[in-house]
Design a protein around this nucleic acid. Structure first.
Lengths: 214, 214
DNA sequence: GTCTATAGCCAGATAGAC
DNA sequence: GTCTATCTGGCTATAGAC
C-alpha cells in the first residue's frame, strides 16, 4: 500500500459522512459491494449519497476510478489482518485460534467484503498483478516454516502449510460468501444463521486443531 | 426440477454444438459464467456462437430468459450430486470420502460454476425462492440424523450436522471460488494450483474425519 | 431460420450557469 | 462546489427482407 493511499484512507476515516467526498465514498461502497462494478449505477450512488450525479465525476472523474477507490479500501481492510496474525511470534495452535476468531468477527461486521473482492478479482485478473506489487501484501513464509517444523517434531500430523492455510481460509470465509446457499440448504432463518456464525468463532479453531494434532 | 426442464436438458445434451440453439446455449454458458448477468453482452454471446445477435432473441426471446436457461442448467448439474450422496445408505465417514472426492473432481471440470451460482444468488435473492420450490432440492435431514446418532453413540466428537455440512462444503468449494486469491497469496503457478487441488481430492476427507473422530 | 438495419432506451460523462 | 440540462455511445430488442 503506497503512502499516498494511506494518507487518503486516513483523511476519509476522519471526514467520513461529513463532507461530500466522504459521503460519496460511503455510498459507493454500499452500492458497489452489493451489486458489483457492472451492476452498480452512478445514479444510485448519487441518490444514496444525497447529492447529484455530476458530483461523482467532479470528485472521482469516472466510474472506474470511483470503483478502484472502493476496491483498494476494501482490500486494505482485509489483507493486513492476515499479515499481523500470520507473522507474529505465537505457536501454530495459537495463531489458528486468534486468526479464526478475529477474522470471523471482522467479516461478520462486513459480510459483503469477501464476495466483493473475489468477484472483482475473477472479473478482472489485472487487479491481481496490482495487488502483488503492494508492499503490505501478506506473506506466508513464516507460517509455512512453522508448520513444517511442527510436523518434523511430530507435534502435527503430516500436512503442508499451503493446504492448512487454504483450509483455514475456506472455513472462515466461505460461510459468508455462500450464505444464500447455506441458508436455503439448511432452512435457516437470518437469526439462526447469525447464531451459527457466532458459534463458529470458537468451534472452528477446535475443528482445525483436532484434525492436525498428532 | 420440472419434467419440462428435464426434457429440455436432454435435448440440449443431444444437440449440443450441432444446431443453432445448442450453439447459443454453449456460448451463453461460457460468457454468463465468466462475466455474470450484468457483465455479459448479447453481442459477445452471438460472436462466440458464430451467429447473429437477432438469433439469440429468436430462440430465447430476451437476455433474461437466456440467462435463466443457463442458470437452471448450472444448478441442476450441481445440486443433484449433493442429493444422491447425502441420502444414500453409507456411513458418515464413507459419505465424507465419497462426497469430497466426487465434488472436487466435478468442480475441477467446471471451475466457474460455483462462483457463478453464488454470485447470481447474491445479486437476485428471488432466485432462492425458486430453488426451494424445486422438488429435486437437496435434503439434509438424513445426514443430520446420522451425525446426531453417531455423536450420541460416542463415535464422533460433539458437532452439529449443520456445522459439519458447512465445513465440508467450505473445504470443497472455496478453493475454487477463491482461486485468484489463493494463487496470489501462495505464489502458485497454474500448474502448482492444479496439483494442490488434485491432492485435496483425498487429503480433505482425512482432514475432516480426523477432526471429528472421537 | 437467418440476416441487416434500426428503433428506443439508458447510463456515463460533460458543459455551463450560479 | 453544486446544480440542471444535455451529449454521446452502447446495449437490448424488433422490423422486415430474403
Amino acid at each position: 500500500m503506497s503512502t499516498k493511499w494511506l494518507n487518503y484512507l486516513v483523511k476519509m476515516a476522519k471526514t467520513k459522512d461529513t463532507n461530500t467526498e466522504g459521503k460519496i465514498l460511503s455510498a459507493a461502497e454500499n452500492i458497489f459491494q452489493s451489486k458489483g462494478m457492472d451492476g452498480a449505477r452512478m445514479q444510485e450512488i448519487a441518490d444514496k449519497a444525497g447529492i447529484n450525479k455530476a458530483m461523482l465525476h467532479y470528485y472521482y472523474r469516472s466510474k472506474q476510478l470511483l470503483f478502484e477507490a472502493v476496491f483498494n479500501k476494501a482490500f486494505s481492510l482485509l489483507a493486513p489482518q492476515l499479515n499481523t496474525i500470520l507473522n507474529d511470534d505465537s505457536s501454530v495452535e495459537d495463531k489458528i485460534k486468534k486468526f479464526t476468531f478475529n477474522y470471523i468477527s471482522f467479516i461478520s461486521k462486513h459480510p459483503y467484503l469477501p464476495n466483493f473482492i473475489l468477484q472483482e478479482l475473477n472479473r478482472n485478473p489485472d487487479f491481481v498483478k496490482k495487488l502483488q506489487s503492494n508492499e503490505r501484501f501478506p506473506s506466508l513464509d513464516k507460517f509455512k516454516m512453522q508448520v513444517t517444523s511442527e510436523v518434523e517434531k511430530g507435534n502435527l500430523k503430516l500436512i503442508s502449510g499451503e493446504q492448512l492455510f487454504i483450509n483455514i481460509i475456506s472455513l472462515c470465509v466461505f460461510p459468508f460468501i455462500g450464505s444464500p446457499l447455506i441458508k436455503v440448504f439448511l432452512k435457516l432463518s437470518d437469526k439462526d444463521y447469525k447464531q451459527l456464525m457466532k458459534d463458529r468463532k470458537t468451534e472452528i479453531a477446535d475443528f482445525i486443531i483436532n484434525s492436525i494434532k498428532a
